[in-house]
Simulated assay, not measured.
Amino acid sequence: MNAVILIPARYQSSRYPGKPLVGLKGSTGVVKPLIHRSVEAARRVAGVSGVFVVTDDERIADACLPARVGVIMTSSECRNGTERCAEAQSQLHEADLVINFQGDALLTPKHFVEALIERMQRVDVDVATPAIRLRSSEVRALQAEEAAGRVGGTSVVTDSEGRALYFSKRLIPHLPAGSLDGEMSPVRLHVGVYAYRPSALTAYAQTPPSELERLEGLEQLRFLDRGMPVAVVDVEPPPFALRELNNPEDVAPIEEALASAGLE
């Protein structure tokens, strides 16, 4: 299977403009832009034939030159990373599988992506994405975030075959009394990495955003609204805290995680 990783990256972020160019210090003190670190993380994945940054901004394209990574330019009209991947795939050579590796998710472990590639060897789904089971203590922390009016992550529920029933920025499913008494909770945290067959990306681009997608702010809900199954692959969490670069205050904990993981 010819799998290609695409890293969507945009300069204009409402919460953190220019974040792909933000410098992040690694375990040895070397500072590299976020986009470089995302490329390095993608290159650690086994079983892929290429890695490309997908952007509409020349500043990001120029910043990619030292990383010696291919860049695919797309329209500024793309509303999310999946639309950007859909537009970019026409420039790929006979890809069987397209991986959407989020440009701000530099801490994504390689085994997350490798598990998706393995799952997509089966032909029963056209889209796959990973999730991790949360400890009860982690759910309580998310509940506190939710009570304070902050979004702490995206949760997912599935059917008995592991296909997504729904994704939400609220904690799902409902947790009755006693649900968090054990060490592990019933809650699964969705990790924003996706594997698509090219036909799924084409169908996505031809489908307008759904009401649920707009309300939740979750691009993957468009697949469910269209009736396309999304396989959710359970993966083991890494020994360090997963965190995306969404706000300036995320820099310090991400640098701590880079040091903990020994990433230069």
Rank of each mutant, 00 (worst) to 15 (best):
S49I: 03
G103W: 08
E118W: 07
L221Q: 10
L245P: 11
R122C: 03
A200W: 14
P209V: 05
Y16S: 09
L65N: 15
S137L: 13
E118H: 03
A41Y: 05
C78L: 07
P109E: 13
S90N: 02
L215I: 13
V187W: 03
K110L: 08
T28M: 13
Y11W: 09
R243M: 13
S136Q: 05
L263F: 04
R226W: 08
A148E: 07
L258S: 01
L245N: 14
S199C: 12
I60K: 05
P198S: 09
S76H: 05
I99G: 00
F167L: 14
G103Q: 07
R15S: 09
P130E: 00
R44I: 13
G47F: 02
V51H: 03
K32Y: 08
E249K: 10
E256G: 00
V123E: 10
K32H: 08
L97Q: 15
I254M: 06
D234P: 02
S210P: 12
V156C: 03
S210R: 04
R37K: 05
A205Y: 13
E40T: 02
D104F: 11
L6I: 14
E219K: 05
V98N: 04
P248E: 04
I117H: 00
S137K: 12
L134D: 14
L34H: 11
A141S: 03
S260Q: 07
T108S: 08
G217H: 09
F223V: 01
P33D: 00
K19N: 13
I5H: 01
L97D: 11
Q12F: 14
E244M: 10
G26H: 10
H111R: 01
F167E: 07
D96M: 10
R133G: 06
G81T: 15
S136R: 09
Q143F: 08
R84Q: 03
M1V: 05
G18K: 07
A105H: 02
A147H: 12
L245Y: 13
N246K: 14
V125A: 13
R222N: 07
P109T: 14
T158N: 02
Q102D: 09
E211Y: 11
A105W: 04
K19V: 10
T28C: 08
P248G: 09
A46C: 05
R133N: 04
S199D: 12
L106I: 11
A252L: 04
M120R: 13
P186M: 10
Y204I: 05
S155K: 01
V251N: 05
V39A: 09
G50D: 15
P130S: 04
R79E: 09
V191Q: 06
V98M: 10
G162S: 11
P176K: 03
Q220D: 00
G178E: 14
G182H: 06
Y196K: 01
V48S: 03
T158G: 09
P130R: 01
E244L: 15
E161C: 05
